[in-house]
Amino acid sequence: MGTAITAVDATSRPKLSRHVRFRFDRTRDRHVLLGPETVVVLNGTGADIVGLCDGARTAAEIVAELRGRYHQVVDEDVLRFLARLAARRCLELSNG
């Protein structure tokens, strides 16, 4: 069993882990990630980021896409958020 990659840089390509599903929770009025024993409740920008994690886009491309939607996107916010979700095994990363 290999060690999961959790370090994120601009070339990382994040995607949802196989056991995680991305859903809109009408009760909470929030997007959530459903794992086997956890529900991860996302805020608006968090949900936008997760929605762009298709395994094809790099982190840099995700940031570029977000710049078209928001003013003053902070790259480091996005990379840190991706790393935190990867550390919780909600995201898988392929680097390079």
Binding site: L34, E37, V39, V41, T45, I49, Y70, R84
Partner: peptide
């Protein structure tokens, strides 16, 4: 007629809250 694009919202730091639940609950929600 000049069109005015809707202003983009300001960036807000992405956040999440993790809630531990029983497996059958996430299966149901899913």
């Amino acid at each position: 007629m000049e069109s005015v694009a809707a202003p983009s919202p300001m960036w807000e730091a992405p956040e999440f809250d993790e809630v531990a639940v029983a497996p059958e609950v996430t299966m149901y929600l899913g």
